[in-house]
Simulated scan of single mutants.
Amino acid sequence: MKINAVLPEKGRDLRLDLFRGVANWAIYLDHIPDNVVNWITTRNYGFSDAADLFVFISGYTASFVYARMMLERGFIVGATRLTKRVWQLYVAHIILFVIYIVAIGYVALRFSDPEIINEFNLAGLAGDQAIETLRQGLLLKFKPVNLDVLPLYIVLMGLFPPVLWLML
């Protein structure tokens, strides 16, 4: 089987790092309410925002890294490394998810404002459905406010090995 993939030179592409960093700053600015500076972000001038740009650039970068690995070492090695990366992202998400829940719960109790729990979409944890909500969180289906991009990226990266193999 002949593979016609053309890959860039080895090493980091600083242009991709630059635009991924700009996307991260735009995501940060978009999450600050009533901020004049976020008027310069792409959220206001199109159908997508910086999170879409970040996921796209990250996938583009992953295709370079893991395609080279698959070509040089085989599909199994490349798929295993991708799966390892997905696992690292999943563990990071679970840790962030727990810290997020604890932080919002603490703020709601500290300031005696249970409405904060509703504002951050954590109401399912306060009632009878806490176990089901946590299960949905572990399955990446339950997403509190501002925690929706990482589960999307984890799912896309999990589906990426066969897609990359087909692309090659």
Rank of each mutant, 00 (worst) to 15 (best):
P8I: 03
P8G: 15
P8C: 05
P8N: 10
E9K: 15
E9L: 14
E9D: 13
G11S: 09
R12S: 06
L14H: 14
L14C: 02
R15T: 11
R15L: 08
D17S: 15
L18S: 07
L18F: 15
G21P: 01
V22D: 02
V22A: 10
N24I: 09
N24K: 10
W25G: 02
Y28T: 01
Y28C: 04
Y28I: 03
L29G: 02
L29F: 12
D30I: 01
P33Y: 07
V36T: 03
V37F: 06
N38Y: 07
I40V: 13
I40G: 04
I40S: 14
T41K: 09
T42N: 05
R43K: 15
N44L: 09
Y45M: 07
Y45I: 06
G46V: 03
S48C: 10
S48H: 11
S48D: 02
D49K: 05
A50M: 03
A50H: 08
A51M: 05
A51C: 04
A51N: 07
D52Q: 12
D52M: 06
D52P: 02
L53E: 06
S58W: 07
G59A: 09
G59S: 06
Y60V: 00
T61F: 04
S63E: 04
S63V: 00
Y66M: 09
Y66N: 07
R68H: 05
R68G: 00
R68S: 05
M69R: 15
E72G: 01
I76T: 02
G78F: 08
A79K: 08
T80I: 02
T80D: 03
R81T: 00
K84Q: 12
W87F: 13
W87Y: 12
W87K: 14
W87T: 02
Q88W: 06
Y90Q: 01
I95V: 15
L96W: 09
I101N: 10
V102R: 06
I104E: 06
G105D: 04
G105I: 05
G105F: 14
Y106Q: 07
Y106S: 07
Y106V: 05
V107S: 09
A108K: 13
A108M: 12
R110V: 02
F111G: 02
F111S: 12
F111E: 13
D113M: 11
P114V: 03
E115I: 06
I116H: 08
E119Y: 14
F120A: 01
F120Y: 15
F120Q: 07
A123L: 05
A123F: 02
L125D: 03
